[in-house]
Nucleic acid binder design. Structure first.
Lengths: 224, 224
DNA sequence: GTATATTTGCGTATCATATACGCATATAAT
DNA sequence: ATTATATGCGTATATGATACGCAAATATAC
């Protein structure tokens, strides 16, 4: 009676590139939902922790190694999987997409990035899981500087601004946004400048994680 | 290999009464950790959803029926349970403690409320689970009006204020706090007044849930 | 009965922060 | 040389947070 529930992990991994937020999906090799797109994930092994299971499955099915990972939610409805009772612990991850070459194997035929506005039909209850992950991303970005996980180590300020307008889905005043971020002192301005097409060249910035943790310890919140 | 992981739910249920925040615990009847205090909870049955499992276990072990319940976090470290690999989905609940007479049965010898500042030694990793739940409670109360779940239907304003000072662990200006809550228009002022000992009698208030959901839909956040 | 302590209810002054927006500067395209 | 575009810096105004004063209504002490 107790021992018939199976346990899986699934990962909703977001990437960002020049105004595009995408999710990492795999094409299933086996039944059920053979040939359908799904979140990377699979069964938890008895001798590994949950985070290890997610990282292993991600690595196996997509070749991606994650730099930011947190637990999202556990989905356990009785009928969510046709194979029987399967409870899945979903994780939420962020990577810089151009940092990895996708490489599918084991249970996946293919691994691909999909724009979150143009997702294919998804297996199981994965559509719902992605929706909840998107809400988490949008909510979280307003009070924690997780956005930096999606940008290159060194980036022009306009990249950060573009990321925020994309994620929040609304315009933000460029000058006030810069004032706010600058006042937090979590960015280091580098000497180097870059010119992107037209316009005055801008400085490159990098995220000062040390400074951020100091602020966080002191109880200061990052708020947009 | 797949089928040896077992699944449980645990509930961290908070109650509040006149300046005291307490957690509901049960004394274990069987091994492991026989006679130790632990969170109410137990194995998930194959044909019930996770929320149903929590509510069933709470009802069986303590007699409490919950009015506010949300998922907290899933704990899955390999060695967290001496019986083998047991993954537990923890829930977070709020009740008005005087609304129920505690009644232990099945796996519990006893069920009792404990002040969060004076908890006994707990079984498994339940101390950690309680800590995370307390952080969630303190964080959540500043941006969602969950505090009302802990008060009677009709309450004097000073009860709400006391609850917040207790939960936040700091003094708040009584007049500014009232202005802030009043401006949200989520409270209905009733005609009735109560006198608690000395001092001018105050109106009773009730929480207008309908109005709150309207505000929430419109994107307005409750913030202390 | 009168004075005092206590709690409630309502107000206003001040300070900090968010928002709106003006404008000079440095580059690419025409 | 001119125009379009992106950057960098500034200031005025509106909004909201905080500090705090004080009258009203009650219980308690004398």
């Amino acid at each position: 009676m107790k021992n018939t529930i199976q346990l899986t992990v699934d990962a909703v991994v977001f990437g960002y590139e020049s105004g595009n937020i995408s999710v990492l999906l795999v094409k299933r090799k086996y039944e059920p939902y053979k040939n359908a797109w799904a979140l990377p994930g699979g069964f938890v092994l008895e001798n590994e922790n949950l985070e290890q299971a997610v990282e292993r499955e991600l690595s196996e099915e997509t070749g991606v190694k994650i730099n930011y990972l947190e637990q999202l939610y556990t989905f356990g409805d009785v009928a969510r999987d046709p194979r029987g009772r399967v409870v899945s612990i979903a994780y939420f991850g962020l990577v810089k997409p151009n940092a990895f070459k996708l490489h599918a194997s084991t249970d996946a035929q293919k691994a691909e990035w999909f724009n979150i506005a143009q997702l294919p039909k998804l297996a199981f209850d994965h559509k719902k899981i992605v929706q909840i992950a998107i809400e988490r991303l949008q909510g979280k970005i307003t009070y924690e500087p997780i956005g930096f996980e999606l940008l290159d180590k060194r980036f022009p300020f306009s990249d950060l601004e573009k990321l925020y307008t994309t994620l929040l889905g609304r315009e933000i005043d460029r000058r006030n946004f810069k004032k706010k971020i600058t006042s937090l002192k979590v960015l280091d301005e580098l000497d180097e400048k870059v010119s992107k097409g037209r316009g005055r060249p801008g400085s490159l910035f990098s995220f000062n994680q040390k400074r951020y943790f100091q602020l966080k310890k002191a109880g200061i919140i990052f708020e947009i």
